[in-house]
Amino acid sequence: MHKIWQSIYRANYISGYNPFLLKNMNKALERVVKAINEREKIVIYGSCDVDGICGISLLLLVLKYLNADVEYYLPEEQSSNYYVDSDIITNHIKFLGTALVITVGCSLVDKEQEDLCRNLNIDVIVTDYKNDLYKSEFITINPNQKDCSYRYKNLSASGVAFKLTQALAIYYNMKSINKYIDLVLLGGYAAKVSIVGENKVIFKEALKYLNVTNNYGLRALMNLNIKDNYSEREIKELIKVLTPTVNVVGRMDNARIVVELLTTNDEYRAEQIAKYLAMEVKNIVS
């Protein structure tokens, strides 16, 4: 374990910010590992903003790499963006044969919803960062929850998801986990988190990874702009393209196709999606 720790957290790499200092991280790791090893269905449930989408994409990429049986769900209604929807659990997630839901930037609503999940034999791991949320008895990873000793409280949704993937990387001896921090960079910028503490370290490293990214979707978007190096201004342009639009009835458009862009391993498909999203932004502006 010591060698694994050193390979991921040496000082000149991503940092020594121990994910296991987050309350309940050990419990979360144990539950996710069980789901992976026993081929239980995992569903990632996230918010439809760029931060949530980046966190979903990050978890999808890592869990698929670990050969997990994993899917994701994004609520279509703008109003349900930051809370788990009971109707979605009953009418969609249940029928996938789901054993474990991992949220990204959204939480359970109340005890009734918690009981619903238990009655359906669905475990939940909540990853979030917001204050004053319903305190579920399910596993919760949130730097702002009571009795969490983690020093850096201003992580974004994708940042908290990244901490979970760091724990998985330690357990499974994944030495390349930091290549995904370009997604955390985009999510954090979109969420407008303060760039101090751990965020400052992540963002500094992520800029290096972004400019040489092997993410087909990000590379396709960057190729459209033909930039040699990406600074804050160019990152904002990327975020603009990745932001799902809201139609007249308050439903989110393009959110799922953005997840596909960020997780595809098909270079041609990435190029087509990037062109489509860029055109959508151009049409909105014009």
Rank of each mutant, 00 (worst) to 15 (best):
H2R: 00
K3P: 14
W5H: 05
R10H: 00
A11I: 14
N12T: 06
N12Q: 10
S15Q: 07
S15M: 13
P19F: 00
F20Q: 13
L21W: 02
M25C: 12
K27C: 03
L29F: 00
R31C: 15
E38T: 04
E38C: 11
I44N: 00
G46Y: 01
D51Q: 03
G52V: 00
G55T: 02
L58T: 02
L61C: 15
N67C: 13
D69W: 07
P75Q: 05
E76G: 08
E77T: 05
Y82E: 07
D85T: 08
D87N: 03
I89A: 09
N91G: 15
I93D: 14
T98A: 14
V104G: 02
S107N: 05
S107K: 07
D110Y: 06
L116A: 14
C117E: 08
N119E: 10
L120F: 04
N121D: 12
V124F: 06
I125F: 00
T127S: 13
D128F: 02
K130I: 03
N131M: 14
K135H: 03
E137Q: 09
N142I: 01
Q145C: 08
K146C: 11
K153Q: 06
L155A: 14
S156H: 06
S158R: 00
F162A: 10
F162G: 08
F162K: 03
K163R: 05
K163V: 08
A169I: 11
Y172D: 02
N173G: 07
N173S: 09
S176G: 12
I177P: 09
N178R: 06
K179T: 07
K179A: 11
D182S: 04
L183T: 05
G187Y: 00
Y189N: 09
S194W: 05
E198K: 12
F203E: 04
E205T: 14
K208Y: 07
L210S: 10
T213R: 13
N215H: 01
G217D: 04
N223G: 12
N229C: 09
Y230V: 08
R233V: 14
E234N: 04
E234I: 04
I235P: 03
I235E: 00
L242F: 01
T243E: 06
V246N: 15
V249F: 08
G250P: 07
N254A: 11
A255Q: 09
V259I: 04
V259Y: 02
E260K: 09
L261G: 09
L262I: 02
L262A: 00
T264R: 14
N265F: 07
N265T: 07
E271L: 12
K275R: 15
K275E: 12
Y276R: 13
A278V: 11
A278H: 12
A278L: 13
V281I: 13
